[in-house]
Each structure stands twice: as C-alpha cells, then as structure tokens.
Amino acid sequence: MSIETIAKAIGSILQDTYSRNYGLSKGFNLMEKEIALSSYHLLMRYADNDEDKNEIIATMIHMLSAPFSDHEIDKITQYVREIFFKQYPDEAKRVWLALIKYSNYKKANPSFYRYQDEDSLNKAEENEEKFVQQISSDKNLTLDLSEISLEKSEAYLLARAFVITPYDTDDKDFSNFLNHILPIVIGDLTKVEDYSYNRTRESRKFHHESISDIEQYLANLFLEANFENSKSIFTTLVNSLSGNAQRQRFGRDDLFEFVSTTLDYFVLKLYDNGNLKIDP
C-alpha cells in the first residue's frame, strides 16, 4: 500500500510536469513533491523482481527528462548522484546509460510539435514510450562515446546525464564520459545562441539552464573528487580559454563566463565549506 501511494504520487507529479502544470493536479500535496522524487532508493529496496526494477528505472528516466524548474532539477540531480548512485550503483548506472541512449533517440525523433495530426502524434508518443521501456529493461547497455555528440544526441538530455555522473567511483566509464563531454560543451559555447525553434547546425545547442547546472556540478567535482580524477577535467576547462585567442568583440563571451563562473563557484563553495560549514 505504501509503495502504491508513492508510485501514484510520482506518476501525478510527472504527469503535471510534462503538461507544464497547466491543470493543478490534486493527486499529490505540493509540499511532498521533493520528498516523493527522492524516494527511488526506498522503492528499489522493495523491488524483488526485474520487472519492478525496470519500471523504477523507466520512471527515473522520465523524471530526468521532465521540464522541472531550475531549483527542482538541482535537487533531483543531486539526489540521483549522491544518494541513489551510492545505494544502487548498478541500477543507477543503467539509468545513466539509458538517459544517454534516450538523448540519441530524441535527436533522431524530434519533439511532438512537429506532428500535424493526432494519429501520428499518438503513434510517435507510443513509439517513444516503447523505446524508454526497452532501454530501461536492457541490462547490457554499454557506453559508446562515438555515439555522443551534438549531431547525434539531444543536448538537454546530455546535460542531465552530465550532472548525474558520479565522480567518486573507480568506474572508468564515468571519467571517460566526463572527459569526452566537457570539450563538447566548451566547443558549443563558442557558437552563437539562437532562440528560434529552427535551429541551424551551427547554433548553440546547450541552453543557459543546462550550462548553469554544469557550472555548479563542476565546482562540486573540483571540491570533492579525487584530484587524480579531476585533474584532466580541470586542465581541459582552464586550457579552453588559451586555445580560444580570438575573443568575441561584441556581446557576452560565454565560454569565458562559463570558465570564470565555474571557478568562482568553486572558490565560494570552498569558502562556505571551510568557514560556515555549509555542505556544497
């Protein structure tokens, strides 16, 4: 009964979020939103068969791709990285790998607003759900870095995968992913921002919200990860400016902003942590 209550609440929360909170659902108390979305490790504890585990993984993928507000997504990604990954590393890695695969699917099958009639929209939604179920139940997903690029992956999902990546494990997949994706983000920040829906190949793919999440994430990584693991990431970040001698003459220099904001966060978090004992 308790599991049912939590699952139902999570279902209502995700439904509300995907419909952009247009209808205020009475399926859950708003005060319990964060509590419900950080209970997956408890649900996993009671999942005694593969089917239940796959269902939890599928729900987590839906959660990690949902359009939550900035402060909500910060808490969600922190929960996945710091609590869920520590308690259920194997299942968490499956979520992580599936999210990366999902980013490929979303890139190949862009959003629903492109569909003109209801039938093709329903069919597209059905196919997408089938895909999510399929990747959620696949225990043999592997990391293929050659499939991770802005030409082949949807940027906002890659950014979500980026910020749930754990940095305190010996699993090389995670450090390889981080070392692969950071140069992609840096390269993208030298492109021009384009706010129209008709995005050309050369325009910026990572949105401001994603970049802001990544800045926070990297600051935490520098603060907490073993230096052996973070050294190469730090070097890539700092060196990105020296290779980019031709600075933008007009408007903001977003790459410069990215590097300096990340380092600012790092110093501020270090200061808070040392003096005020505030957790990063």
Binding site: M1, S2, T5, N29, E32, I35, S39, L43, Y46
Partner: peptide, 24 residues
C-alpha cells in the same frame, strides 16, 4: 495539509520488515 506520501516513505524507511509483512 495532509502528507500521505511522507507517511508512506516513513513506512519503507523505518519499518521495512514490519510493514512489508503486515500491510504490503
């Protein structure tokens, strides 16, 4: 003002054996 989800989570967190046996 009611918090049924929190109560449910409490069940899973605090009474894992008790509750799975008696109510799940």
């Amino acid at each position: 003002y009611s918090i049924p989800v929190t109560l449910a989570i409490l069940a899973l967190r605090e009474f894992s054996d008790d509750i799975s046996r008696r109510t799940e």
